[in-house]
Nucleic acid binder design. Structure first.
Ligand SMILES: NC(=O)c1ccc[n+]([C@@H]2O[C@H](COP(=O)([O-])OP(=O)(O)OC[C@H]3O[C@@H](n4cnc5c(N)ncnc54)[C@H](O)[C@@H]3O)[C@@H](O)[C@H]2O)c1
Ligand SMILES: NC(=O)c1ccc[n+]([C@@H]2O[C@H](COP(=O)([O-])OP(=O)(O)OC[C@H]3O[C@@H](n4cnc5c(N)ncnc54)[C@H](O)[C@@H]3O)[C@@H](O)[C@H]2O)c1
Lengths: 220, 220
DNA sequence: TTGCCGTTGTGATTAAGCTAACAAGGCCGC
DNA sequence: GCGGCCTTGTTAGCTTAATCACAACGGCAA
């Protein structure tokens, strides 16, 4: 009962497990072993067992894990039992794609407000989400109790937008711009740097090429 | 001269350094210290010095690093001195956004071919990039010598698309679907799981909340 | 009830990465 | 040309994470 801290690496895998467990349930599978899970999510089976064990003894020896039980458990852990509203700042190329998608499929998250400076789209509704002018951001975030924002604005306005978000007491930012943001330490930033991902992939291929086969892992 | 292997973690940071160095050069700064870089890219200065040192002694003690020299160096390392063509499979929400953006800004990568099954867009040109039917994928990839593909198709077709890419001898895949792909070990997969990123961010905020301040880092 | 089989949960080990700290060494003012 | 100062390059220790390997234990069949 030490209520010990879940390792960061484990936390990042939880949504992956959760998602696949739901797929299993949809296929009426109520039982799964760490080995089987391992194959599907490409995570070593020992790592999976260790991850699960941080939450206590969830499985049965000689049997495996009970899928519905795991789902119920992770649903709470991941706050998927309640809807989380997030904001989107910058409705351009990428912003539009995210708005349209809106994380509907078995994820209990949705974009409930968007913000932009472009007068052509401000005060319209896109994919069911209202787009407000920047000037209303603070008010809306507070009124709607939104604690998380997605930033898809041009790079050079990213920091100023961030500063505004900080004023509105946002707690987390998913940052799609290549800028590394300065934030007070009450805010957690998750960077998604697509150009970087692609360049890194190219680097690995050009430089680690032939050595890839054999014992080395190829994912992530 | 041991030509030693660059650690994976270092490799992932190289594009970040490269990008910021170019910003410095644009601002006519020809000299930079690890401390200054550290502030901008949010990486510990000791880590930066260590990263650079894998490539030899690039800096001068008591002075710092010469920006143009570093840029020239990293440009070669990152293969940014030549254009890399990549393919895009699945021109939907996300695919469109990527096509429009197309990594133009100071990155020497571009999408030169796209593929889809939707007859309404096949054989058209979007943002200057031709969209081919899936049936031509093998031929086009080979003809254009494309070794890298971005997958933005619906989840349930991801694996079959991957199998086709494998047949066309692709070397790397940037996978935006939540499926974990099975690939031969000649192919490197980089997963970009946006729903996962968002859920993980939510998890961290809800569970590591108050402990975030102080010594803990908040990025990535 | 008993005993075998399969799978978990976990100690031990190995690997990878981060960061504090500082000596070495070059820059720059005088 | 010299000395203080600044910043690198790197050693060492620490932290986190992955993986191996197996004893413990519940299911299940007879
Ligand atoms: N689109 C991609 O595929 C892609 C790939 C990699 C990185 N990125 C990054 O993602 C970010 C967005 O890219 P994009 O292609 O969607 O850009 P975009 O130019 O299409 O969209 C930016 C949107 O932000 C709005 N905006 C500008 N200033 C604003 C402000 N101060 N407050 C609120 N909104 C503001 C603009 O009106 C526009 O609608 C950029 O930083 C880009 O570097 C995009
Ligand atoms: N859009 C987002 O914001 C977002 C967020 C998170 C994850 N994703 C993931 O990214 C992927 C794409 O999302 P999207 O919103 O762009 O989907 P989308 O449905 O808008 O686009 C999918 C495109 O793929 C094409 N397609 C279907 N089957 C194909 C096949 N076999 N070969 C080639 N093309 C095919 C379709 O015609 C369509 O144009 C999905 O797997 C989704 O889960 C998207």
């Amino acid at each position: 009962m030490a209520e010990q801290r879940i390792p960061r690496a484990t936390a990042k895998r939880l949504p992956i497990y959760y998602r696949y467990l739901n797929i299993l349930l949809d296929a009426d599978k109520t039982r799964v072993s760490s080995t089987e899970l391992s194959e599907a999510v490409k995570v070593d089976s020992a790592t999976i067992r260790r991850d699960f064990s941080y939450f206590g003894a969830l499985g049965k020896r000689g049997y495996g894990y009970d899928v519905p039980k795991l789902i119920e458990f992770f649903k709470k852990i991941l706050n998927q039992d309640q809807l989380t509203n997030v904001a989107l700042v910058g409705v351009g190329n990428l912003g539009h794609a995210l708005l349209n998608f809106n994380f509907h499929q078995n994820s209990n998250v949705r974009i409930s407000a968007a913000f932009d400076v472009n007068d052509n789209i401000v005060n319209t509704v896109q994919s069911g989400v209202p787009i407000y002018p920047l000037s209303e951001m603070g008010k809306q975030l507070r009124d709607q109790q939104i604690a998380i924002a997605i930033i898809t604005v041009p790079e050079n306005t990213a920091q100023e937008v961030t500063d505004e978000l900080a004023k509105a007491d946002v707690r987390g930012i998913l940052n799609f711009t290549p800028r590394r943001l300065s934030v007070p330490d009450t805010i957690r930033v998750q960077n998604v740097d697509l150009t970087n991902e692609l360049q890194t992939l190219i680097y690995f291929i050009d430089n680690y090429g032939e050595l890839l086969g054999g014992n080395e892992k190829s994912q992530d």
